[in-house]
Design a protein around this nucleic acid. Sequence first.
DNA 1: AATGAATGAGAGTTCATTCAT
DNA 2: TATGAATGAACTCTCATTCAT
Lengths: 202, 202, 202, 202
Amino acid sequence: MARTVTGGGESGTAAVPERLLAEATRLFAERGYDRTSVQEIVEAAGVTKGALYHYFGSKDDLLHEIYGRVLRLQTERLDAIAARDTPVPERLAEAASDVVVTSIQNLDDTKIFFRSIHQLSPEKQKAVRAERRRYHEKFRSLIEEGQAAGHFRADLRPDLVVDFFFGSVHHLGTWYHADGPLSAHEVAGEFSDLLLHSVRRP
Amino acid sequence: MARTVTGGGESGTAAVPERLLAEATRLFAERGYDRTSVQEIVEAAGVTKGALYHYFGSKDDLLHEIYGRVLRLQTERLDAIAARDTPVPERLAEAASDVVVTSIQNLDDTKIFFRSIHQLSPEKQKAVRAERRRYHEKFRSLIEEGQAAGHFRADLRPDLVVDFFFGSVHHLGTWYHADGPLSAHEVAGEFSDLLLHSVRRP
Amino acid sequence: MARTVTGGGESGTAAVPERLLAEATRLFAERGYDRTSVQEIVEAAGVTKGALYHYFGSKDDLLHEIYGRVLRLQTERLDAIAARDTPVPERLAEAASDVVVTSIQNLDDTKIFFRSIHQLSPEKQKAVRAERRRYHEKFRSLIEEGQAAGHFRADLRPDLVVDFFFGSVHHLGTWYHADGPLSAHEVAGEFSDLLLHSVRRP
Amino acid sequence: MARTVTGGGESGTAAVPERLLAEATRLFAERGYDRTSVQEIVEAAGVTKGALYHYFGSKDDLLHEIYGRVLRLQTERLDAIAARDTPVPERLAEAASDVVVTSIQNLDDTKIFFRSIHQLSPEKQKAVRAERRRYHEKFRSLIEEGQAAGHFRADLRPDLVVDFFFGSVHHLGTWYHADGPLSAHEVAGEFSDLLLHSVRRP
DNA sequence: AATGAATGAGAGTTCATTCAT
DNA sequence: TATGAATGAACTCTCATTCAT
């Protein structure tokens, strides 16, 4: 969709659309979608408004692209983990751990995701929610599989468990700091552990 | 429910500031703080802008008032529960259940809280975060008490557990619907159960 | 027009209209008529808006009152000086000196006078300008008298001399400070001296 | 007179920023800075608000630009006159005469200068006052030079003389009318003559 | 004599977007 | 591929004034 470099690969001069997306991500996470002006984005990216509107149809489109990127990434990873040939509890633990790690590694996207979705146009919101639902359904089916196999408590509502866990994941952006005492993997380990303990048969 | 300051008195003619707060809450939850104009709020409340600015210093002040209300309510309830004379696991379960129920009963406030805090002025944001922190600390001390008493797993980081659980609570606004299949108490029961299972000694 | 004290003469409690005029004068001089709100005036005077509108028909009226006060004062003093039985050059010198002294003693009024006259309603502006013109004419007639008597240069246009001199007087408010190196009388002496030298026959 | 930035070129289609400055000058002089709305300015210039804010950061900026223009003009002219190789009294007379002529030729700027400086933001006010002070100092040094050379009375305070004279100059805007009986040069001649007589050794 | 809630009009400013070049 | 001038609508907030009490 957008070329990788301009000119011929000079260091530090990523292609214009990439630079725009990167700066938009940073600014949206920092001060919110509505509080970030198109002017600020283009200034940060070192181009003019015309350039932005050459590559993106609207400010809204930028946000949609950011969503697309993170959703694609997480869906791919979940698919890979779910398809493994290991016991369900292990796959659930890995899936949980993995989504925490990638959420932290892309903390700006995580922040934007759950703060700004309402600022997308209705149609785009619908598309994003549908993709998100598919992701949740894949995660939920791991829980259902574990219940069917007798690993997890049968009295739990799998959809509620998913909402419970992803609430925690989405919330990461509001408290996690890269320079805090915890590494991404430490948080991931503990969150995964809490989830497994909460669903496992005693 | 709302004090009648001027004339009136019949239901439906609540005092102007109360009406403004109620409509602002509804609109902020519905379309977000930045997407709600002062004009829309005063129209919904049936007054003019001048009236709003007679009672509130700024749009920002309205949001702050809304936060204050819900924080006061939840803090009071948590204090009451924590002070009970029952075993810690029971108190934690009740605190967890209660915060879910009141979050659902005030779902508009919950939605606003989670989404709009970044749109407060820096000073007000600081004040709100400080109050929120005190609330979390009180909740955390229940977990610490349970660990000390040998009820809960000692290897857990209490602060991480709090962030884990309140992520789930704050997230309620993004998926819960009053006309869905689950009552507030059903969700509360399951969330509380998940939390307790995740922290209890096996 | 307005009583002098309320209650019975307690110190520091001047009557409401006087207090309003005094605070309005101070504020208009400090930040200009348009930049001073009625709210600020009533707060400074320790009353409410209703009280102000009880005594004055409009914000405009306050300004008109302030003008009236200073015009009356200066007209009275000029009349007294002009009527004296001394040689014209002496009377002109005293009139010039006196208007400088009273302008400095009422520096707030002086500042307001030449900055805010355009903010009066057209009718009030007309009235004030007419009074001011009468004052200038009286001053001018001193110069004409001096020319007729052979004291002053006959080739000067008396009206231009008046505008020349009163420009200097009106300008006092922009540079004179009570805590500066010059007393009101020192400035008055020098201004008067400059005027007399500029008109006298060599 | 005004550079044509976009298209156009024919007289009457001056560039947008020039047109905005011209109309703003006219309107500020006519009804004062605070009483002139941005809406009125853009309507007079035949553009929209967006265009104004494309070129000027604020209404305040417009005023600052107007000040800058007139200060630059007068400073240049005074520098040229002061640098001449003629006797000091002649140079002072010419400087005085020149500032009167240019003040009358730019009477709108003169009116604005005198009345609206207090409505500039504090920082801009400081900048303008500093420039004005440099101008006054240059003028004052002419007087000091004349005193040192024995042309002017030694007992006069040069700074007071400057304030005396520039009061008269700034005041021109309040009484001079182009369609009145006096030409700019007639006024300039008389003002200059009055100044010289007031300072010269008898 | 005085209150203060409420009005309604208008203020300056911001902003996403368009389009001729 | 990219510019940047210009639009037009909407924004938050301020204010002098009124009026029932």
